[in-house]
Design a protein around this nucleic acid. Structure first.
Lengths: 229, 229
DNA sequence: TATCTGTTTTAGTGTAATCTAATCCATCTT
DNA sequence: AAGATGGATTAGATTACACTAAAACAGATA
């Protein structure tokens, strides 16, 4: 097999890799300042860490441009994401956590659990494919489902959609989404959008009309279930 | 309320406190070199940490004598021990871990879990009083049962006992104990002891005779259920 | 009482991670 | 084309924790 030595990564390194994965998943490069903002550290701290990470071969750094994960870095990042999402799912399903309260707990546990524990949790849950927010859970082998989803804030008026993923860090927002019935799996039709970054209005199938502000609507990712084919 | 600020303790600090608790639970002082041995660090590292811990008021240090926990330090140590034992119990009962495999996992998780998670686990388990090795679990309030137990290696020949606690770090030893039927709750009678730190022979009630070497017999703690009263 | 022995502590380094202040440089504006 | 602007980087300090090597000390022995 490969994986020569696999020096154990520190907590910090694991956090950086996860953030870089998220930031570079769409566009190619993750910018220093964006990494700093997400991790709530000062930009120079990022520069320092970036140097070490690229020396270890986990990322590639183009000065003044940004960073990208290498194959090795991507593998490590997906491992952490699997841990996080399995933990979130386990905590909600087995220990009575609400979907708005699991994030922080998982965030701390993901650095401490063993592979064995994660796989036992996954087994207990029947190897789930999605976490409580609808995000896909990478497999133990490191594969992740990549479905094309529309950001609700950008979906055309008239679109018929299924809400798949609710992305939000803040518990208060998640609680609000839940109250509004905006949870993964719900069907909806986009009925209106106000200009100048205005709100999107949707008809929740079987539950009435909702007006969703731009900021929140950017965290809602939907599958197009239109009329077609 | 009390507890003015409660600066969060680091992993290392938590480990030191736990070890100091164990070492000073019987005799009064924990020696630098014993702490170093348990934590597998060099003695000077302990001296350094001891200085900081006594400055923070978690321990009291008598130079060249050793250290003792303060009230505050004891509270913190018992909190960690509760975490550890609840985790061990949860992992064995809910996630199929064997009693010989839980220690390391709990050791890492105890620094990461929240109070909330521990209490949810405890609740799921019905607030257990003992961990899989028979050790008493401190309450959330910080009280711990202190039963007088006899070390099997020191129990008099003829004593009729109930095995209460099996103390061993090494998974291989724990597995051996389990194979021998030496698990918490079992009744036994001491039938012989060889001189010069020789082995103890016991009759396991309903399971036959066992010869236990001195070293192992020091990890077996029993309650005297003698003939009396 | 003087010395030996082994433990403890001090001194000085190293690494991982952070910070602030100062500098550098790519790009946008005029 | 020349600045101005703002993000990125370097420089230097700090904290927590570990280490090795050297000094200090307490208690046992002669």
């Amino acid at each position: 097999m490969h994986a020569v030595h696999e020096a154990p990564l520190t907590r910090s390194v694991e956090d950086y890799l996860k953030v870089i994965y998220h930031l570079s998943s769409q566009g190619g490069f993750a910018a220093t300042s964006d990494i700093a903002a997400r991790l709530e550290v000062a930009p120079p701290s990022v520069s320092g860490m970036v140097k070490r990470l690229s020396e270890t071969g986990l990322i590639e750094h183009v000065p003044y441009r940004g960073v990208q994960l290498t194959q090795q870095g991507r593998r490590a990042a997906l491992k952490m994401i699997r841990r996080h999402r399995i933990l979130e799912t386990y905590l909600t399903q087995q220990l009575g956590y609400d979907w708005d309260g699991v994030h922080d707990e998982a965030e701390r546990l993901e650095h401490a659990v063993s592979d064995q524990l994660i796989e036992r949790m996954a087994g207990t849950l029947g190897d789930p494919h999605y976490d409580p927010h609808g995000a896909p859970i990478p497999t133990a082998a490191g594969d992740i489902e990549e479905t094309e989803l529309l950001i609700l804030a950008e979906a055309p008026v008239g679109a018929v959609l299924e809400l798949r993923e609710v992305e939000a860090q803040d518990p208060a927002r998640l609680r609000y989404f839940a109250e509004q019935g905006l949870v993964p799996g719900v069907g909806l039709t986009v009925t209106d959008r106000q200009p100048f970054n205005g709100p999107t209005t949707v008809l929740l199938h079987g539950a009435g009309v909702r007006v969703v502000g731009r900021e929140l609507a950017q965290g809602l990712r939907c599958l197009d279930t239109g009329g077609g084919a």
